[in-house]
């Protein structure tokens, strides 16, 4: 099963984080777990890229952080999507779908 994990293409991590946060506010660990779960363990997010990405998104104003209580009642930093983030998610998701459809079309020809 481990062999099926693939590395994330450049730039898609931001999109996945935004998409995950569109469901509900989540902390860093939760985001990585959620992505792994939903992708059926295919996509695995490394901490080394996750946290810099979170800080970058926060700087751009697409997500906001606040401290909250986690499931096991510990202090954790929760991120939630801002309005700007939602707009960004919509446009990036659209672009991504178009791109992947086009790539699939090319690959499936003949």
């Amino acid at each position: 099963m481990a062999n099926e994990r693939i590395d994330l293409p450049q730039g898609t991590l931001d999109l996945l984080i935004l998409r995950t946060l569109a469901l509900e506010p989540q902390h860093g660990w939760g985001i990585s777990e959620r992505i792994q779960q939903i992708s059926s363990n295919v996509l695995q997010v490394q901490q080394g890229s996750l946290y810099p990405a979170l800080h970058r998104l926060e700087r751009r104003g697409w997500i906001k952080a606040r401290w909250g209580m986690s499931e096991n009642s510990r202090r954790a930093k929760y991120y939630n999507l801002t309005r700007g983030g939602r707009k960004q998610l919509d446009s990036e998701a659209g672009a991504w779908r178009k791109l992947s459809a086009a790539v699939a079309q090319v690959l499936d020809m003949a």
Partner: peptide, 18 residues
Amino acid sequence: LTFGGIEQLKEECRDARG
């Protein structure tokens, strides 16, 4: 092991914050 270099990670976060 999965975490990698913690200081390096922090450094990258700082970079990301600009």
